[in-house]
Computed example of a mutant assay.
Amino acid sequence: MSTSSNDVTDTATTAPSAPARRIALITGANRGIGRATAVRLARDGFDLIVTYRSHREEAEEVVREIGALGRVAVALPLDVSRVDGFGAFVDGVRDALGKTWHRERFDVLINNGGVQVAQPTLQATPAAFDQLVDVHFKGVFFLTQQLVPLIANPGAIVNISSGTARFYVPERAIYSAVKGAVEVLSRYLATELGPRGITVNIIAPGAVATDFSGGLLRSNEQLQKHIASITPLGRFGVAEDIAGAIAALVSEGNRFVTGQRIEVSGGVHL
Rank of each mutant, 00 (worst) to 15 (best):
Thr14Asp: 08
Ala15Ile: 06
Ala15Val: 05
Ala15Glu: 05
Ala15Lys: 00
Pro16Leu: 14
Ser17Cys: 08
Ser17Thr: 13
Ser17Asn: 10
Ser17Trp: 02
Ser17Arg: 07
Ala18Tyr: 08
Ala18Gly: 13
Ala18His: 09
Pro19Glu: 11
Pro19Phe: 10
Pro19Gln: 08
Pro19Lys: 08
Ala20Trp: 03
Ala20Tyr: 06
Ala20Phe: 08
Ala20Pro: 08
Ala20Asn: 09
Arg21Met: 13
Arg22Asn: 15
Arg22Gly: 13
Ile23Ala: 10
Ile23Tyr: 03
Ala24Glu: 11
Ala24Arg: 01
Ala24Thr: 04
Ala24Phe: 04
Leu25Lys: 00
Leu25Pro: 00
Leu25Cys: 06
Leu25Trp: 02
Leu25Phe: 03
Leu25Gly: 02
Ile26Met: 03
Ile26Leu: 11
Thr27Leu: 09
Thr27Glu: 07
Gly28Thr: 06
Gly28Ser: 07
Ala29Gln: 05
Ala29Cys: 06
Asn30Val: 13
Asn30Asp: 09
Asn30Arg: 13
Asn30Thr: 12
Asn30Tyr: 03
Arg31Cys: 05
Arg31Ile: 06
Gly32Thr: 11
Gly32Cys: 09
Ile33Lys: 02
Ile33Asn: 00
Gly34Trp: 04
Gly34Pro: 04
Arg35Leu: 12
Ala36Phe: 10
Ala36Met: 10
Ala36Asp: 03
Thr37Trp: 05
Thr37Phe: 08
Ala38Glu: 06
Val39Phe: 01
Val39Tyr: 00
Leu41Asp: 08
Leu41Val: 10
Ala42Asp: 03
Ala42Gln: 04
Ala42Phe: 00
Ala42Tyr: 00
Asp44Met: 11
Gly45Asn: 08
Gly45Asp: 07
Gly45Arg: 02
Gly45Val: 12
Phe46Ile: 12
Asp47Glu: 12
Asp47Thr: 10
Asp47Leu: 11
Leu48His: 01
Ile49Lys: 02
Ile49Asn: 05
Val50Asp: 01
Val50Trp: 00
Val50Lys: 00
Thr51Cys: 09
Thr51Asn: 02
Thr51Val: 12
Thr51Pro: 01
Tyr52Met: 10
Tyr52Lys: 08
Tyr52Ser: 07
Tyr52Cys: 11
Arg53Pro: 04
Arg53Lys: 13
Arg53Ala: 15
Arg53Thr: 15
Ser54Trp: 01
Ser54Met: 12
His55Ala: 15
His55Pro: 03
His55Thr: 14
Arg56Pro: 04
Arg56Cys: 12
Arg56His: 08
